[in-house]
Simulated assay, not measured.
Amino acid sequence: MAIILGLTGGIASGKSTVSNMLDQKGYTIIDADLAARKVVEVGQPAYLAIVEEFGKGILHKEDETIDRAKLGNIVFHNDEMRKKLNGIVHPAVRGLMLSEKDQAIETGKNTIIMDIPLLYESDLTWMVDRTIVVYVNEETQLSRLMKRNQFTKQEAASRIASQFPLKDKVGLADAVIDNNGTIEETEKQLEKILKDWDLRP
């Protein structure tokens, strides 16, 4: 019986770093962000539903792909529109991730990693058996985000504030990786979890 692990964290917490480590160790990663990009590719059902709802004005002229900035501007300031968009995209993303999971199980995988940034915010814990949260303290998160995205302190702080606080996610997790230290320390913690839970790729 395959084990489904939910991997999550917060913006600039280092979740992608841990996801890459697992990938290099041969684990199957199903990435929610990647799935969200796939379901809105030209011609996909979610793409057609978005164009129908928001009009062709949100498309790039040259290739008819969705202009994320334009769509983002519409939904950022309008709750109702954002709910409509999420109502189209979220079920499509879940569907794609679950079918990728089924395919991985069919090929004999023992452990499947669901990399879901908004695992708790979107109430998706039903999709996984256990959860790992990648944690950093607020100062580290702030400085990493400012450096990574060239944000001002205020911009970075507002991005962090828009998410469920990392310290609250820690209380909900089955295991926590403290990513305040070095990469080596992070990897050591990951390996301990994999060993303790007896998780093979």
Rank of each mutant, 00 (worst) to 15 (best):
V39K: 09
K70I: 11
M21C: 10
E185S: 14
S162T: 11
V40Q: 05
Q44K: 15
L145E: 11
E185I: 07
T28G: 00
T125Q: 10
T182Y: 06
N73Q: 15
Y47I: 02
Q189R: 07
E139C: 01
D31P: 04
I3P: 00
G108R: 08
E187I: 05
L172W: 08
T182H: 06
A35V: 04
E155K: 11
L96Y: 10
V39N: 11
D129E: 15
Y27G: 05
E191M: 14
I29P: 03
E184A: 13
E80P: 01
H90F: 07
Y47E: 01
L98E: 15
Q103P: 00
K188W: 01
S13V: 02
I105Q: 08
Q141C: 05
L124P: 00
I50N: 00
L194T: 04
Y47N: 02
D123C: 06
Q163S: 07
K167D: 12
G43F: 12
V170E: 03
E191W: 02
D178Q: 02
K109H: 09
I3E: 02
H90W: 02
I116F: 07
W197E: 15
A69I: 14
L5M: 14
G10H: 00
T152N: 06
S122Y: 02
S19L: 03
Q44I: 02
T131G: 04
N86W: 05
D63A: 01
G87N: 14
G181R: 14
K15L: 13
Y47D: 01
L96D: 07
I50F: 01
A157G: 03
V18L: 12
A32I: 03
M146S: 05
R200N: 10
I112Q: 12
I66N: 05
I4L: 12
A2P: 15
N180H: 08
E53S: 14
G171E: 14
G108I: 06
A36P: 01
E138K: 14
N86K: 00
S162Q: 10
S19P: 04
Q150T: 12
F54Y: 03
E106D: 13
A2M: 15
A32P: 07
A46W: 03
P165F: 15
D63L: 02
I113T: 08
T182I: 04
S122E: 12
D198P: 00
R144A: 08
I183S: 07
V133N: 05
V176D: 06
R148C: 07
D196Y: 01
S13W: 06
K167N: 11
Q154W: 05
L142W: 10
I116L: 11
V134T: 11
G181T: 09
K153I: 03
